[in-house]
Nucleic acid binder design. Structure first.
Length: 936
RNA sequence: GCGGGUGUGGUGAAAUUGGUAGACACGCUGGAUUUAGGAUCCAGUGCCGCGAGGCGUGUGGGUUCGAGUCCCUCCACCCGCACCA
């Protein structure tokens, strides 16, 4: 009987669907296992063969865990808010929901044909109001929370109000901007210029409601603030730091500039240390953990206050990791945007400073970073700072290389010990005090830490390692500085000036935002998906009656960023239809952390950071019982395309075969891989492909073929190298495609797609099918056949445990080859093999399970156990080597002791050739492995 | 510059604790068969050599009876971050 994969796959997909085979419910009697895929953004292009790689791997693992008796949660959904649908809407006027719906349907169709074991009753879509209602709820709870830095926990805002009313800020330390009282919007506050942030209960109570709400805003975890944001004019929206690459937007590659805007912001920075510390509890690769640490960017050092000459009441605060080098600070540099620039600038320098500031503001982020080559530029303010120890007056400059967004936006420049400061000093002729013993820092900068300090007062003779803590203590004693830990991680901008995202559950009364919590705010229809003429976001176009809720003076016009919905979706799968909570605590207690998270490595840094942040927040507030979302994570490698090329002789319609292209001046052109078989071009097909090739003539090779060139590169439409899973499922079946993608190589590695190899895997499934079709009643299984089975059980189980899916397929191939060779006909023996094959080839496995007399579905069969006695052979064959070179094989009884093995090896007739005239110095016998005879 | 990773046949790769390098496939070569197909079956296939044998896991060294695996050096490529004080 032929392997009719179409009939088999259709039959079982229909039966599984009819029987709800993949539906799971909480079952306290069973141990749970949560296997999650990164849910896709449903793009219009559909899936290519690279997309399902991770889905197949997680599916295989989920099925394996189910066989092992776990209650497996394996859901799927869509990250369905996003830019492409909106941009399509801008162009066509079609509502993004319509585009999204169509794309989702297409994705579902493609996913279904691969036979995944998703429980589709748990599907979520981030753009579904029933879902984003809870994204809005989490936002609202963040708004209603503050971060207690003493307890290192998020707490409800009510507890902060209690504290403010009774003790002001004397007993609580909420996470906030350092100088929160300086950035308050205009209003009436009961304090004067000298206020330093130590708010008393009386002052608090003396504030009116508006002032109180402004103050409270400074402590909320979701807060509104004017801040420098990454503004992308082409996209008309702000972007988060991780959405900007090299000063260009990640999507579309448009220039990004800095702009000051009032935005919703998430206080993720309060979680910095926990986000670093808790990485230790996770089973992730070092590279992902490192990327997280890198992004958070912790550095230890000191904050130091320099005086301002002529303004004894003001100080310039800087952060430094090298407080030991403070005696070498010969000038200061402020970011051009620094608030003290105005005060410091002398009349004579005013013009130059303003020009420099203007130029800096107009530069794009990319230009400002010098696009890699770090040119020095700066401008003297004309003002001076006072060194906190020597009390010398040192000049203050502004320069691009000091970033407003890091530290305090100001540095003490130590040219002797810092590369950039040194370059800057050289460029502008500033002094470079020598502070390292025996180092001429006039010639080159010295950044190592193994020379003692000099010209450094009390620190003279100490190495930096000793001097750093000493310097911190000294500065603290003098009251001009203190030890400090700094993080690169900034608070995350949470507003987007787009239509296709979650609307905020917020309205405004004046400029005071009010939460709307009793009714869900849904996206109103708009007449166009572009900003208004006043530059307001698209939602400002909605008329009052278009909103389902209108309150206050106006609604919030911004929407939430793409990462909002994807930061908690793994929780919603646990309780997807709950309309009173985002997820019932009993459900999240049962399902717990994601045990295995599979996805691409491309955009994970931000996603992981944000999901971890929200998870910690929800944990702090007691809504879930774990503080990290993903216990273990695997990044699948990218499947690369294999492009084909034709070579057109320049200025002609002639195309030359790859072997002879050097004889001509040619132009290399991508050709559709569907027109190429084993690099041979279908010339007729090529002519028919595109009108400009209709008259193509070919210069062929000796065999009369046209051979195409090839190269491995990313799959993309424009390279005509996209392979869709649909074609392959049609031709070989889902099981073949699943097995082939797993067989291709280690999951985590990038690898080129090569359709040719698929025939080997397809053959394997045909042979497996044949093996079961040759069973005969009454035929007994032999011992060697049992050994093959149990060896395979062991190998497949171990390989699945360590996610080595490629060798699982090899092991099954070997088993099938050997069992066919051994003419196995016993159904009893074969049945466990169907279970072993079921994770990778579920349809065929089910068919063969039934065929071999299995009861119920193969899906629920217990995973077979390898029996030890079948794993040991009666005889053992040792490779016998002389001085490490294997010379012959020696077969002995398996239970023979090492000494006897040694004797037999030495007595072996072939050994005599190698022993002649030599003395045996040593014999090593590794039981079950090898015999090595050392002669000399 | 910093951090992470990878280098093994013509190709994808295997070798889990140091123990026969190249399993399993693809491709290729030869043969058989055939309803001529992108089918099936058999044999061969790391390199050099007629052979015995020698050489082989990016380079060079080291440890060891034994190294793809451990240590040091250098090289190449890929990915992430990057004027972060």
């Amino acid at each position: 009987m032929e392997y009719d994969f179409r009939a088999i796959e259709q039959r079982w997909q229909a039966k599984w669907k009819a029987g709800d085979a993949y539906k799971v419910t909480e079952d306290p009697s069973k141990e749970k296992f949560y296997v999650l895929d990164m849910f896709p953004y449903p793009s219009g292009a559909g899936l290519h063969v690279g997309h399902p790689l991770g889905y197949i791997a997680s599916d295989v693992y989920a099925r394996y865990k189910r066989h092992q008796g776990y209650n497996v949660l394996h859901p799927m959904g869509y990250d369905s808010f996003g830019l492409p649908a909106e941009q399509y809407a801008i162009q066509t006027g079609q509502h993004p929901a319509v585009t999204t719906e169509a794309n989702v349907a297409r994705y579902r169709e493609q996913l279904d044909q691969l036979g995944f074991c998703y429980d589709w009753s748990r599907e979520v879509r981030t753009s579904d109001p029933a879902y984003y209602r809870w994204t809005q709820w989490i936002f609202a709870e963040l708004f209603e929370s503050w971060y207690d830095t003493t307890a290192d926990r998020s707490k409800p805002i009510a507890s902060l109000l209690d504290a403010l009313n009774s003790d002001g800020l004397s007993t609580v330390k909420p996470a906030c901007d350092g100088d929160w009282w300086k950035v308050l919007p205009a209003g009436k506050y009961p304090w004067d210029e000298s206020f330093d942030g130590r708010l008393t209960a009386d002052q608090w109570k003396a504030c009116d409601a508006i002032a109180q709400s402004h103050i409270l805003m400074q402590f909320r975890l979701a807060y509104l603030a004017d801040s420098e944001v990454n503004w992308c004019p082409a996209l008309g929206t702000v972007l988060a730091n991780d959405e900007v690459k090299d000063g260009l937007s990640e999507r579309g590659g448009h220039p990004v500039v800095r702009k000051r805007m009032r935005q919703w912001i998430m206080r993720i920075s309060a979680f910095s240390q926990r986000l670093i510390d808790d990485l230790n509890s996770l089973d992730w690769t070092d590279s992902i953990k490192e990327a997280q640490r890198n992004w958070i960017g912790r550095s230890e050092g000191a904050s130091v206050h320099f005086g301002v000459a002529g303004h004894p009441e003001r100080t310039i605060e800087v952060f430094t990791t090298r407080p030991d080098t403070i005696y070498g600070a010969s000038f200061m540099v402020l970011a051009p945007e620094h608030e003290l620039v105005e005060l410091l600038t002398s009349a004579g320098q005013q013009e130059a400073v303003t020009a420099y500031q203007t130029a800096a503001a107009q530069k794009s982020e990319r230009e400002r970073q010098g696009a890699g080559d770090h040119e020095v530029s700066g401008c003297f303010t004309g003002g001076y700072a006072v060194h906190p120890i020597t009390e010398d007056k040192i000049p203050v400059w502004i320069a691009d290389y000091v970033l407003a967004g890091y530290g305090t936006g100001a540095i003490m420049a130590v040219p002797a010990g810092d590369e950039r400061d040194w370059k800057f000093a050289k460029a502008y002729g500033l002094s470079i005090p020598a502070i390292f013993e025996g180092v001429d820092t006039d010639e080159a900068v010295y950044t190592d830490k193994d020379k003692a300090l000099c010209n450094s007062g009390a620190f003279n003779g100490q190495t930096p390692v000793e001097a750093i803590p000493a310097a911190i203590a000294f500065l603290e004693g003098k009251g001009v500085g203190k030890g400090q830990v700094n993080y690169r991680l900034r608070d995350a901008v949470f507003s987007r000036q787009r239509y296709w995202g979650e609307p905020f559950p917020v309205c405004y009364e004046g400029d005071i935002p009010q939460l709307i919590r009793d009714e869900q705010v849904t996206l109103p229809p708009v007449d166009a998906y572009l900003p208004t003429e006043d530059g307001d976001p698209p939602l400002a176009r909605a008329k009052k009656e278009d909103w389902n809720v209108t309150r206050g003076d106006r609604m919030e016009y911004n929407t939430m960023p793409g990462w909002a919905g994807s930061s908690w979706y793994f929780l919603r799968y646990m309780d997807p239809h709950n309309n009173t909570e985002f997820c019932a605590r009993e459900k999240s207690d049962y399902w717990g952390q994601v045990d295995l998270y599979v996805g691409g490595a491309e955009h994970t840094t931000g996603h992981l950071l944000y999901s971890r942040f929200w998870t910690k927040f929800l944990f702090d507030r007691g809504w879930i019982g774990f503080n990290e979302p993903f216990k273990r994570m695997i990044n699948q490698g990218m499947i690369l395309g294999r492009s084909n090329f034709v070579y057109r002789v320049q200025g002609t319609d002639q195309f030359v075969t790859s072997e002879r292209r050097k004889e001509f001046q040619t132009q290399r052109l991508h050709v559709d891989i569907n027109l190429v078989q084993s690099d041979k071009l279908d010339m007729e097909g090529f002519r028919a492909w595109r009108p400009e090739y209709a008259n193509a003539e070919f210069i062929l090779n000796e065999e009369g073929d046209y051979l195409c060139g090839h190269e491995v590169e990313k799959m993309s439409k424009s390279k005509f190298n996209v392979q869709t899973p649909d074609d392959l499922v049609e031709r070989y079946g889902a099981d073949t495609l699943r097995c082939y993608e797993m067989f291709l190589g280690p999951l985590t590695q990038h690898k080129p797609w090569d359709t040719q190899g698929i025939s080997g895997v397809h053959n394997f499934l045909r042979k497996l099918h044949r093996l079961f079709n040759q069973t005969a009643s009454g035929s007994a299984a032999t011992d060697p056949q049992y050994r093959v089975l149990h060896k395979t059980i062991k190998k497949v189980s171990e390989d699945l445990d360590r996610h080595a899916f490629n060798t699982v397929i090899s092991a099954l191939m070997i088993a099938v080859n050997e069992l066919l060779e051994a003419k196995t006909q016993n159904a009893e023996l074969l049945r466990p093999l169907a279970i072993l094959a079921s994770p990778v080839a579920p349809h065929l496995a089910e068919e063969l399970w039934q065929l071999s007399g299995g009861v119920n579905s193969v899906l629920d069969q217990a995973w077979p156990v390898a029996e030890e006695h079948w794993l040991t052979a009666d005889e053992e064959t040792y490779p016998v080597s002389f001085n490490g070179k294997v010379r012959f094989q020696l077969t002995v009884p398996a239970d023979l002791d090492a000494k006897s093995v040694e004797n037999q090896a030495l007595a072996h007739e072939k050994a005599q050739d190698y022993l002649a005239g030599k003395t045996v110095r040593k014999v090593i016998v590794v039981p079950g492995r090898i015999v090595n005879i050392v002669v000399g």
